[in-house]
């Protein structure tokens, strides 16, 4: 390596960014801290835009300078204010580069607008938009004369809604049913203390089955994860669309498939959102799907994926 030069390496995959939205008190800070505590080797970069005090548990902080707070486990945190683009660029330039960015939107921001900007940036890819709802207060907030429409739009812009503080709500079923009408087709996950597996919020890590481990309020008994192996030659776009179909009620799906021309494609599904991008040739074929137990019929998904692949390649069709 030349002195002062940058090590030439394979072109980096775009850095995934998950936007975390939701009104004040919905649990964004709790969620971020929970994700940091169970990062499990992922280098998370947290971007915050809530006023003032850093919303990170002091036990997780190792060091701080002007722009960046170093956290345990190789994670970092910065506040981005009105300069989101240059803050993201700064994070992407860190060595080692973070694996994933969690971008916390302010309580009145439209996460969809932030996601739209992320989608325009080179070197970044929008992973998804997770919006938290406080099960105890969300209906009242959504009817508020000033912020009601903002809160309702935040849900409409979500890929996943985390219905948090379910332990405090008198009737969580009713709240979830109401959310279903306020934001049709957006998948909802119930939680208390924002306690959900990291693979639900950030997607599974590539190459292996999703670990559905939560914290002290673990509801992971409620999740199901499955590894699918679509045959080579499947149309990645058709597969992704199928996995994002609201009828399957998957929360997330992620992995690689081999195209008809032999190249690998990466598939990423969050709720109704799906993306297909090019993947490195050495990527291993396989798709990890995550959903809620009792909602997802894994056998049916498996069957449809196989059928879709078959129809596409046409080998078995008379």
């Amino acid at each position: 390596m030349a002195p002062g030069g940058k090590r030439p390496g394979p072109p980096q995959l775009p850095l995934p960014v998950t936007v975390v939205g939701g009104y004040l008190g919905a649990g964004k800070t709790t969620l971020i801290n929970a994700m940091l505590r169970r990062a499990g080797g992922r280098r998370l970069a947290i971007m915050v835009n809530e006023f003032g005090a850093l919303p990170i548990d002091s036990s997780l902080i190792e060091a701080a300078d002007d722009r960046i707070v170093t956290l345990t486990g190789g994670c970092v945190c910065c506040s981005y204010g009105e300069d989101m683009v240059s803050s993201l660029a700064m994070l992407a330039a860190l060595d080692p580069r973070p694996d994933h960015v969690l971008l916390e939107a302010s309580g009145v921001a439209f996460p969809g607008a932030i996601a739209g900007t992320v989608g325009l940036l080179q070197d970044f890819v929008l992973d998804g938009t997770v919006v938290l709802a406080d099960a105890e207060t969300v209906q009242r907030r959504a009817a508020d004369r000033y912020i009601g429409s903002t809160v309702r739009q935040q849900f409409a812009q979500a890929d996943l809604i985390l219905l948090n503080k379910c332990d405090l709500a008198a009737d969580p079923d009713a709240v979830e049913a109401w959310l279903g009408e306020a934001a049709p087709d957006v998948r909802t996950v119930r939680a208390r203390q924002a306690d959900v597996p990291i693979s639900v919020v950030l997607g599974a890590r590539s190459g292996g089955p999703a670990k559905l481990v939560g914290g002290p309020f673990d509801h992971t008994g409620g999740f199901v994860s499955a590894m699918l192996n679509p045959p080579a030659g499947a149309d990645p776009g058709a597969l992704a669309r199928l996995l994002a179909d609201p009828a399957h009620r998957l929360l997330r799906a992620k992995g690689f498939v081999r195209r008809g021309d032999g190249a690998m494609a990466a598939i990423q599904v969050v709720g109704n959102r799906w993306t297909v991008t090019e993947a490195p040739a050495e990527a291993r074929s396989g798709l990890v799907c995550i959903g809620l137990k009792g909602q997802v019929d894994v056998a049916a998904v498996r069957r449809e994926v196989a059928e879709a692949a078959t129809v596409r390649t046409g080998t078995d069709t008379p």
């Binding site: 009104y23 004040l24 006023f51 302010s106 309580g107 009145v108 439209f110 000033y146 912020i147 429409s149 903002t150």
Partner: peptide, 10 residues
């Protein structure tokens, strides 16, 4: 109908 730049609580 536009954007809030601050939550009413703040």
């Amino acid at each position: 109908e536009g954007l809030w730049y601050i939550p009413p609580e703040h």
